[in-house]
């Protein structure tokens, strides 16, 4: 385990001093180390640099290339975009997607605040219950949960059966194929993200601030609105941008639970490629969706920092 200690003997004549320690910089040392052994190799081909170059190459070929080629293919013939927008389904789908994604984002924020607050401040037992339910749900795949909502929201599903049995309604309400079903299904998938970002931000609020506000005579509701909400706003907004962007790219939930008339952009694209077999027009529509996502992220990133939206700030701090 301590094999690297061995060469110390060879170096006893030159004691490392402060300067050398601080210049032990990954950019300079590898070069020296390599040069002493063999002919110099460029940094990007030696040691860690070689691994990194290979990894960058992998991402370029396996991920960036397909997206880039699709974009080039779509842009190479402007007719693709003309055809894309001449489809009424697609034009409507843009508005449907943006409108429903915004609604889902608002629902997620409203639902997440009380949940995150209790998660951050309640007794241990309650925290464990809330965390377990949230995480089991979070790790159940979107497809499986959407399937489950289909079972529950059916005319013969549990919710309708129970409501009829309890006399709340006389006959089953149609819930499948409505916007309500999509909001429910999507918020169920996306709310954990806002809960977790708001929770992380709330944990950072010192309890003393709330106590101080209470001592000064604030009611709990006032403490919530004047202390908790302003101090957790950055986390909430970052979570909201993330959730909005994720909602824009949804396919499974609106396709299974939503109406056949108001389709999502994702559905329009899949239809174009798989049913109409016009891949290039589908590619053009995919480029439009990608642009909407990138513009949202650029605007959100300008005010909140892109690292915060993608959860990278925590990776850097911890």
């Amino acid at each position: 385990m301590f094999a690297p200690l061995r060469p110390v003997a060879a170096h006893t004549d030159r004691r490392p001093n402060e300067d050398e320690v601080t210049t032990l910089d990954s950019a300079t040392v590898p070069d020296q180390a390599v040069r002493s052994k063999a002919a110099p190799r460029p940094a990007w081909l030696s040691g860690i640099g070689a691994f990194q170059s290979a990894a960058v190459l992998y991402m370029a070929v396996a991920f960036l290339l397909p997206v880039l080629l699709m974009t080039i293919r779509a842009v190479s013939d402007p007719q693709n975009f003309v055809d894309a927008f001449s489809s009424g389904i697609f034009r409507r789908s843009i508005w449907t997607t943006v409108r429903m994604s915004l609604t889902v984002t608002v629902v997620c924020l409203v639902v997440s605040y009380p949940y995150a607050y209790v998660l951050a401040r309640a007794r241990r037992t309650i925290v464990i219950i809330l965390a377990t339910c949230l995480l089991v749900s979070f790790w159940t795949s979107t497809l499986v949960r959407t399937y489950s909502w289909q079972l529950l929201l059916n005319n013969t599903g549990l919710i309708n059966t129970a409501m009829v049995a309890l006399g709340i309604v006389d006959e089953p309400i149609r819930m499948m194929g409505t916007d309500f079903a999509v909001y429910l299904g999507m918020a169920h998938v996306l709310a954990p993200y806002t809960v977790l970002t708001i929770y992380a931000q709330m944990r950072a609020i010192p309890r003393e601030l709330e106590e101080a506000a209470q001592i000064m005579g604030s009611r709990p509701a006032t403490v919530f609105w004047r202390v908790i909400v302003p101090l957790s706003r950055p986390g909430a907004l970052a979570g909201a941008v993330l959730v909005f962007v994720m909602a824009l790219g949804f396919y499974i939930t609106p396709q299974i639970l939503g109406s056949a008339q108001n389709v999502y952009i994702g559905t329009a694209i899949v239809q174009q490629v798989q049913a109409f077999l016009s891949t290039d027009v589908g590619a053009a529509q995919a480029v439009v969706l990608l642009l909407i996502v990138l513009i949202t992220l650029a605007v959100g990133g300008k005010y909140l920092g892109i690292g915060r939206i993608l959860g990278l700030d925590k990776a850097g701090q911890r």
């Binding site: 309640a122 377990t132 949230l134």
Partner: peptide, 26 residues
């Protein structure tokens, strides 16, 4: 400040809603 009973109850209700679809499938 411990959350009040009403808020805690609301959060637990939401926890049940989070977990419920998984339970239904199982």
């Amino acid at each position: 400040m411990r959350p009040r009973f009403g808020v805690t109850a609301l959060a637990i209700l939401m926890a049940v809603i989070f977990l419920f679809p998984t339970i239904v499938v199982v």
